[in-house]
Design a protein around this nucleic acid. Structure first.
Length: 284
DNA sequence: CGGTTACCCTGGATGC
DNA sequence: TGCATCCAGGGTAACC
């Protein structure tokens, strides 16, 4: 489920609970989620070690352990999330972190079991794995980097924005929001964007993601929650996602919810008036 | 190689 | 009520 703002909210929530704390033990309750490591490896290495940092890399949560105990990487994917309070369902708990000197527990839950738990021996190994499938972070990429990456593909702008190898962090919700904010039709070709449009898109990405982090992410149904079990507030203030058939906040015409093959088959929300296929592009 | 599709998994909502 | 179908915010292996 979580995209960049939700994962950022997770690590911000986890830090006060974990950083500087010694782990009494960790338990991998569902080894199915493990990738490239064993349950024994993770549990034995993390036992009795201090958590040095909790960072976000794209949509990954990276926990660095002290000395040479390596790094635990968790990818929440669609339905993964952390809890500092007891989670609503015991049967969805996939991993637990038990803190020394207290009875405190951090839970990792994942309804659909699409998430991943990995362990890397050192930072270089984790970085290499990340770089293999990721481009620059969406909050760090420059306009010129973005322009260069968009120029290289004939795909639609939406699937390109969601491609973690192009830039890391954007998923279906924030792709729709940023394209609306930038006035770009989702079926435009990435390479067709003019320089002024790339600038607008880059600015929209920064603004939307910052607003979503401020709101602690996007919650709906029984999905994403903060580590305290609270709902993120972004979908109460957004423009497009989940608003098909309702009036566009820009022009009042109806928002279209479409499912188009070239848009990865995921629901796509847009306003054909504010996001004209022809665009308003020009070269600077 | 670039781009598209099928599929991983589970549970809630919808429809008959 | 019961059962079938569809849908979901991610990611990647396999395919054309």
């Amino acid at each position: 489920m979580p995209e960049l703002p939700e994962v950022e909210t997770m690590v911000r929530g986890l830090r006060p609970a974990l950083v500087g704390q010694r782990l009494k033990a960790v338990r991998v309750l569902d080894p199915f989620l493990l990738q490239g490591c064993t349950k024994k490896q993770v549990e034995a290495t993390a036992k009795k070690t201090v958590v040095v940092s909790v960072e976000r890399r794209g949509k990954w949560v990276v926990m660095t352990l002290e000395d040479s105990h390596g790094l635990i990487v968790i990818q929440p994917r669609m339905t993964g999330g952390f809890w500092l309070v007891p989670p609503p369902r015991d049967d969805h708990v996939r991993m637990t972190f038990h803190l020394e000197g207290s009875e405190k527990i951090v839970w990792f839950c994942d309804t659909r079991r699409l998430g991943k738990i990995a362990w890397f021996a050192d930072l270089a190994a984790a970085e290499e794995a990340f770089a293999h499938s990721h481009g620059p972070d969406a909050l760090a990429i420059t306009v010129s980097e973005l322009a260069a990456r968009l120029r290289k593909t004939n795909r639609g702008i939406k699937p390109t924005l969601m491609d973690q190898k192009v830039l890391a962090g954007i998923g279906n919700i924030y792709a729709d929001e940023t394209l609306f904010r930038a006035g770009l039709h989702p079926e435009r070709t990435a390479a067709s964007l003019k320089s002024n449009e790339v600038i607008k898109l880059h600015a929209a990405i920064q603004t939307i993601l910052a607003e979503a982090i401020e709101a602690e992410g996007s919650s709906f149904d029984a999905g994403y929650r903060t580590v305290l079990g609270l709902e993120g507030g972004f979908l109460a203030q957004n423009a497009m996602y989940g608003r098909g058939g309702k009036p566009c906040p820009g022009c009042g015409n109806l928002i279209i919810k479409a499912k188009i093959a070239c848009l990865i088959g995921r629901p796509t929300h847009y306003c054909p008036t504010c996001q004209p296929l022809g665009g308003h592009g020009f070269e600077l």
